[in-house]
């Protein structure tokens, strides 16, 4: 009797790992394929059956891709936009979350509900008018256009407010008795106590800003202002059948984020799960 159960258990364990490993392979496959394709020669790419790895890794593909289109410029633009939006987001999010969690002002509940309600609105409804606004402000083809609309996010504000509210009110009251101004309390107590959450928000914003596609596409015309995602798509059209270069270019776009992910995934995962779990 017991032996039967043991055998069943072992089979179940093995099956479990088989499934998990198969799933892992399925998950990573596009990445591996991207890297390996980027290092193949054009001949290797059209080889049937396709080899998993190139004979000799063609690192020069990256150099060619980099020089074939102004990727350096694209990279700089992406970095500038990402850093500026993230800095802006952090400032507005901290200020707003502090106001919602600690300060008392008339209409607070209504305004908070309003912020939450905006999360329901699909961006597709807003994009037309926002494009129009950018045109009217003559911000087309500028950094401002890519940064300003995104420096406040109701989502991050909601997230951080939840975190801030977990700090006991007694700390705020104690600080008040000790003649600590609201602003000072926010900077010296609230922010340091919630370092992890704020860092998570920063990382999440870096990722979404880096990967942004549609909006930069809309508001930029010239090559000088293009970001990596738009540049990659452009390059795909231009490079046509040079798949190995296209793959290399994709790598350039994807790799920095993957590296950040591998080192900082704790913060990313925490940020995403916190938003999902009811706290």
């Amino acid at each position: 009797m017991k032996n039967n159960r043991k055998v069943v258990n072992i089979i179940a364990e093995v099956l479990k790992y088989v499934i998990l490993v198969a799933g892992s392979v399925f998950t990573i496959l596009p990445f591996i394929w991207m890297i390996s394709s980027s290092l193949k020669t054009p001949a290797e790419l059209v080889q049937v059956p396709p080899a998993l790895f190139p004979e000799v890794p063609q690192w020069l593909n990256y150099k060619s891709a980099w020089e074939a289109a102004p990727f350096a410029r694209y990279l700089v633009n992406t970095i500038i936009v990402t850093i500026c939006t993230t800095a802006g987001v952090l400032v507005t999010t901290v200020l707003s979350a502090f106001a919602f969690s600690r300060l008392n002002f008339p209409g607070k509940k209504t305004v908070f509900s309003l912020f939450l309600a905006t999360l329901m609105i699909p961006g597709e409804m807003l994009i037309i008018t926002n494009y129009e606004t950018i045109i009217k402000l003559k911000w087309i083809d500028s950094y401002r256009a890519m940064i300003v609309p995104w420096i406040s996010s109701a989502f991050y504000i909601y997230l951080l407010t939840r975190f801030f509210m977990q700090v006991p009110e007694s700390l705020y009251l104690a600080a008040k008795v000790d003649k600590c101004s609201d602003f000072k309390y926010m900077i010296k107590i609230m922010v340091p106590m919630n370092k992890q959450a704020i860092f998570s928000i920063a990382i999440l914003n870096i990722i979404s800003s880096w990967n942004a596609f549609l909006w930069p596409l809309l508001v930029t015309n010239s090559q000088e202002m293009r970001v990596l995602s738009n540049g990659l798509v452009r390059f795909q059209t231009e490079a046509g059948s040079s798949t190995e270069l296209i793959m290399a270019a994709s790598c350039i776009l994807v790799m920095p984020i993957i590296i950040i992910y591998l080192f900082l995934r704790k913060y990313i995962i925490e940020g995403v799960t916190r938003s999902g779990l009811k706290g």
Partner: peptide, 8 residues
């Protein structure tokens, strides 16, 4: 999740 949809 963290990868650019466009690139992948």
């Amino acid at each position: 999740y963290v990868t650019s949809v466009i690139a992948i």
